[in-house]
Design a protein around this nucleic acid. Structure first.
Length: 831
DNA sequence: GACCTGCTGCGGCTTG
């Protein structure tokens, strides 16, 4: 920041602010002064606040106070009840719960200064009165979500109300940066800048690997905007619940129930704990296991995940707040910004998967000033110990994952255009410029823009005969508008980018809601069958209109549902760090406790084959009774390994016809061949050539099928699929897939150049195959010398992959037996 | 005797 541009933050102006801060017990820290100074200078910026560093509102005390003072100068302190007001401040958060908290927090300084300010809440769960106020322009400040903001933009009266905006604050920007919700917000912010040109935009972000980019995406109009650092990050220490000396520890798996007694000892040693798991299913299983041995009232043990009914989730949160709950078993649904007091300890069950996630979760733990936060890691299999040692190193070096902002999400753009057509209409040329001002659409070319317009006007050439797809018309004055009320209605029902379909509600006969499970899980059950859900054993009574009616079961058994969620591969950052730990082990340089505990296993790996490391690519060629297996360990996460395995199988098959199958996990991949074959380092090296990656990937996957499935989300967001109606049973997955699949086929046949087909392909490459990361890994593997070993038996690294590969073509029982037999042989041979 | 995965988030109430 240059001295000339820095405004004078005089003591006179600071005085009321200081008094306010003092009353809150907050100090006017340097970063707070900097935010205020920049704000007064009319600048925008991004404030980086590490997780758990305190109230975000404190950072905005200055700007807020200034806005309040301006409001006071504007007119009388007391206004008539329904007098129009000027909206000055817009606060956007990705979470409804956070919006409610923020309204409460904003009221404090307003009341303290005795101002007649009306602060509104505009989210889906806001009261009808609040919604009315937000639309009627009778607010001074408004707290909302990206979706509700989009809805407001669909009303013609909004433009005038937003013209007086002075400040927009985007909270938890790191949560939006990497997804389509963020793209929707980028477009809305561009609209706001057009409506209120002197608007200042400030974002708040947790730590990210690409903070500079995060700022540029939020503030594309201000290339030299500030990136202000808040409080320094809190130190974090990491402890691992190690197996006892001499204890055998599983080589594979992920549930970790062998750790039950150690975990329960830990839980009982502190007053309150959060036990984080990686999947909803795992949270249910652990909740059941814990409750069987829980020595206290069952009500002190709670469960929290995204498929539970909001009422049950808020009961768990409330229990934490009131101190009636001692332990919550939770997934990521509890690591977001919901307001509850910090707990005494945080446990992470299984792989942390990435550093950002681990930091977020650890941030939930209470800490005394000056003392570091602490997280207890509970391994579920042997090699996870290496991940924890690696995580500790990554912490020490401040390595953390970036989030990649999407580009050219044309489905979101189409939705936004219809929103604006509805909210008073737009001129295509002006909107083109506005849209290109965002990061997501900076590279939008005129041809694609015309295609987007044509798409919302008539659906594209193949759909032109269907009136449902003619949503927008061009008026006499050249403005694009929506005339049809039915179109307007349907559009407002489908605003947003989150798609979740095909889930079955679980309810008691009397109507109490428990949450939702997936169709294919409940579809396998028959009335009378028991299953485990929401921390209870339930009996299915009947399945009707996408609702499973249940009653409590007497016996505590039954299946635990699985949900098809994200893939959550190990992050590249953490994978690299794991390799480095292996290299340090090989060099005899590591004295991490996890490494000491793993010493026998690492020695076995070294004796049978070799340790992996960043300077070579470890390959193992194992001839076994069931076939020949080539194992590779790039440590790049499961998604990349799957793509890599398919690619290698294709290339190998071109050289020598054979029958291949492959399996991947977070550490590596295995290619299994039927017919006899041999490998050498030169062959592996040749298979790993980075050339023709996209072409070969296209050949190795059934891209049409992948794209066809990806198209469902795109069709929903772009408004091609009718929304499900409020209060009605949601459509089943089969119906949705059928209608989106039908659309896909019609377009593919009659309009193969349709913009959304191309987008489905792009998203398959970018998201499912993670092609950028894959290309990177491939080039990296090709660069490394291949260290090929021919171990006599499976190794600690290859065993989990082999076990997984056997599962694909064996029944559960046969598989169990075979894995147990081989494990026994290994045990005998290697002690 | 080991093993069986896979997160989160939002929004709407016309027309017949």
């Amino acid at each position: 920041m240059t001295a000339a541009r820095r405004p004078d933050v005089t003591p006179r102006r600071m005085a009321p602010l200081k008094a306010w801060f003092d009353a809150q017990g907050w100090r006017a820290l340097p970063f707070q002064r900097e935010v205020w100074a920049r704000w007064l200078a009319g600048e925008s910026g991004l404030l980086h606040t590490p997780t758990g560093s305190g109230k975000t509102l404190a950072a905005f005390g200055g700007p807020l106070l200034d806005v309040l003072e301006t409001a006071r100068a504007d007119g009388p302190v007391k206004r008539k009840k329904n007098a129009p007001r000027t909206l000055r401040l817009l606060w956007i958060t990705p979470l409804r719960a956070l919006a409610t908290d923020t309204v409460r927090a904003l009221r404090e300084p307003v009341d303290a200064l005795g101002l007649d300010w009306r602060i509104g809440l505009r989210t889906g769960d806001a009261s009808a009165r609040d919604k009315r106020l937000a639309r009627a322009g009778q607010l001074d400040a408004l707290v909302t979500t990206p979706e509700s903001l989009a809805l407001l933009l669909s009303y013609p009266e909004t433009a005038a109300q937003f013209a007086g905006l002075r400040t927009v604050v985007v909270d938890e920007w790191h949560e939006l940066l990497g997804n389509k919700r963020g793209v929707l917000l980028q477009l809305a912010l561009a609209r706001l800048r057009a409506l209120a040109p002197s608007l200042r935009t400030w974002g708040l972000s947790a730590t990210l690997g690409n903070l500079g980019e995060a700022r540029d995406v939020l503030l594309p109009h201000a290339p030299d905007a500030a990136l202000v650092s808040g409080l320094p990050p809190r130190a974090l220490t990491l402890e691992t619940l190690l197996p006892d000396a001499g204890e055998r520890f599983p080589w594979a798996g992920h549930l970790g129930l062998v750790q039950l007694s150690r975990v329960i000892d830990r839980l009982l040693s502190q007053r309150t704990s959060l036990l984080f798991t990686n999947t909803r299913s795992q949270a249910e299983l652990w909740h059941r296991a814990l409750s069987a041995v829980w020595p206290e009232d069952q009500g002190t043990l709670a469960l929290h995940h995204g498929s539970l009914d909001p009422k049950l989730r808020s009961a768990a949160e409330q229990g934490l707040r009131e101190g009636t709950v001692r332990c919550v078993v939770a997934t990521s649904s509890l690591d977001l910004g919901v307001d509850f007091p910090a707990v005494d300890q945080v446990l992470q069950l299984g792989s942390p998967k990435g550093m950002a996630r681990l930091l977020q979760r650890a941030g939930r733990a209470r800490h005394r000033p000056g003392e570091p936060a602490h997280v207890v890691c509970v391994p579920t299999h042997a090699l996870e110990l290496m991940e924890y040692a690696a995580a500790r190193d990554a912490l020490a070096h401040g390595r953390i994952e970036p989030r990649t902002p999407p580009r050219l999400s044309l489905d979101v753009l189409a939705q936004h255009c219809v929103t604006l057509a509805l909210g008073g209409g737009f001129h295509a040329d002006a909107l083109y410029d506005e849209v290109r001002g965002t990061h997501a659409f900076a590279e939008l070319d005129p041809r694609t823009w015309s295609a987007v317009i044509e798409f919302i006007v008539q659906g594209g050439s193949a759909l032109a005969h269907y009136p449902d797809y003619r949503r927008v018309v061009r008026g006499d004055d050249g403005r694009y508008i929506v005339e049809d009320r039915k179109v307007a209605f349907r559009h407002r029902l489908s605003i947003g980018t989150i798609t979740s379909d095909g889930s079955v509600a679980v309810k008691f006969l009397r109507g109490g809601a428990l949450g939702s499970v997936e169709e294919n899980f409940i579809g396998r059950l028959r009335p009378g069958d028991r299953f485990q859900f929401a921390g209870r054993t339930l009996e299915l009574v009947r399945l009707h209109e996408m609702t499973a009616q249940v009653r409590m079961a007497k016996r505590a058994d039954g299946m635990v549902p699985k949900w098809q969620g994200g893939r959550m591969p190990l992050s590249g950052e953490l994978g690299r760090e794991v390799e480095r730990v292996f290299a340090r082990v090989a060099a005899g340089e590591s004295d991490a406790p996890e490494v000491r505990a793993l010493a026998p296993l690492l020695r076995l790996q070294h004796a049978l084959s070799a340790l992996p490391g960043p300077d070579h690519l470890l390959a193992e060629w194992v001839r076994a009774r069931d076939g020949k297996h080539l194992f590779l360990y790039p440590f790049a996460g499961r998604a990349v390994h799957e793509g890599l395995a398919a690619l290698l199988a294709l290339r190998w098959g071109r050289r020598a016809p054979n029958s291949f199958s492959f399996t991947a996990n977070d550490y590596g991949l295995v290619l299994s061949v039927q017919a006899d074959a041999d490998v050498d380092a030169a062959l592996i090296h040749a298979l790993l050539q980075p050339d023709a990656l996209v072409e070969d990937l296209t050949d190795s996957f059934n891209l049409t099928e992948l794209a066809r499935r990806q198209f469902r989300e795109i069709a929903r967001v772009s408004g091609l699929l009718p929304p499900s109606l409020p209060g009605r049973a949601p459509r089943s997955l089969r119906q949705l897939q059928a209608s989106s699949g039908l659309l896909y086929d019609v377009l593919a046949r009659h309009d193969p150049d349709h913009l959304l087909l191309a987008q489905a392909q792009r998203e398959v490459f970018a998201q499912q195959l993670d092609v950028v990361h894959l290309a990177h890994v491939l080039a990296d593997c090709a660069r490394r010398p291949v260290a090929l070993h021919r171990p006599k038996s499976l190794t600690p690294l290859s065993f989990p992959l082999w076990a997984e590969s056997q599962r694909a073509h064996l029944s559960t029982e046969d598989w169990r037996a075979r894995v147990a037999r081989v494990a026994e042989q290994l045990e005998k041979r290697h002690g």
